Amino acid sequence: MGSYPLLPDRDERRVFVALGDSFTEGVGDRSSRLPNGVRGWADRVAEKLAKAEPGWEYANLAIRSKRLRHIIDEQLEPALAMEPTLITLYAGGNDILDLGTDINVLMAQYEALVARLAATGATLVLFTGFDVKVSAVLEPLKKRNAVYNQRVRELAAKYGAVLVDYWCFEAFHDRRMWDTDRLHMSKAGHKYLAAQVLDHLGVPHKITLKEWEPPSKVTLREWERRQRRWVSDWVFPLVGRKLRGVTLGDNLSPRWPRPVKVPRKGGLKKLMDSSPSR
């Protein structure tokens, strides 16, 4: 066996493929030097894998706003063709937010996807969803999210997947772990999640979060001002997109559509600097 029991031996080809939506694309962790203007936890995991054991290749097929059916139709076959040895999957979060979703049908489709990925023999990492405290308007969706999380836990056990139980992470109760839209992780959130994934895989790293002072108390006036800004900047545009039948991911391509060899030093930013056209 190699140094890390959940990962391939040193003399085997090592390919990490990340599947999903904005969660895995990296939305909220901005980086002008990287594809789609974001970095994210998956990029950070790929870089630490390469630093621990040179030779890792990495592809990220995730695109924001994608529903489970899109991930199955657009990402599954390309991922299988890459013969991955490590796969991460988060899918279904956007479906949970769609009012017409039948959670039982959704989870049956999710299991079919997990079964296909597990059959590759790759190490498979699955995630539960966090109970984001966005607005009382979304509280009725909590039951659907609870069903999703329980089924993901069951399927991780059934198919021998590594489970990153995101729902349990107390650190994400701090609002500074979230971007201004309150739905996507901030840079700090993505760093924390990358550390969790690496810990679950047994890969050494030195990712740490800075020590924060306790959150300052917010006055009622400041709270109202933030609420108005959030509604104006995020809620109204989201409703408008839904009415028009468009999403933020419609004109985007996968950030890393083909496996790239991750430099041990300098990471993916170095790769972009040396090969701007990829």
Rank of each mutant, 00 (worst) to 15 (best):
G92D: 04
R176D: 02
V17C: 07
V134W: 11
M177E: 05
W178Q: 04
E224V: 14
P140L: 06
R241P: 06
D21L: 12
E47T: 03
W256T: 09
K261W: 04
R255E: 10
P5T: 13
V164T: 03
V17R: 01
W223D: 11
T123K: 08
P215N: 13
V17L: 07
A195I: 03
V260H: 00
A112Q: 15
M1Q: 15
G93I: 00
L117D: 05
G267P: 07
K66P: 02
T247M: 07
Q150E: 05
S65M: 07
G40S: 02
D165Y: 10
L86W: 12
L209P: 14
E170L: 07
I72N: 02
E74T: 02
Q196H: 09
G240C: 08
D73T: 01
W56P: 02
L220M: 12
R151P: 05
L113H: 10
P78S: 09
H200C: 15
R153F: 01
D11N: 15
E53D: 00
L243R: 11
L198T: 01
D233L: 03
K142M: 10
Q109H: 14
G245H: 09
G121D: 10
S277H: 14
L113D: 10
R264D: 01
Q196P: 14
A52P: 00
H200P: 11
H173D: 11
S186R: 00
P259I: 05
L80D: 10
R144Y: 11
L220K: 12
L97D: 07
F130R: 00
G37R: 13
I87C: 04
G37P: 02
D250E: 04
D21A: 14
E154Q: 15
W178G: 03
G249H: 06
L61Q: 04
R226K: 10
D11C: 09
A157M: 08
Y4T: 06
Q150K: 12
N94W: 09
V260C: 00
L49N: 02
L268Q: 02
R144I: 03
P237Q: 01
H200Q: 13
A119M: 04
A118S: 13
V203C: 13
D11W: 12
G202A: 01
Q109T: 08
W230A: 00
L19K: 14
L89C: 07
R10F: 13
M82F: 09
S32H: 11
E154S: 12
A108H: 08
E53S: 00
D165P: 06
R30Q: 03
L49R: 08
R13Q: 13
S31P: 11
A157N: 12
Q75E: 14
A171K: 11
R241G: 01
V27R: 05
L113Y: 04
V239L: 08
Y159S: 13
W178A: 02
L201D: 01
E57K: 14
A112D: 15
R255A: 14
K133H: 11
L198E: 08
G249T: 04
Y159Q: 10
S3T: 12
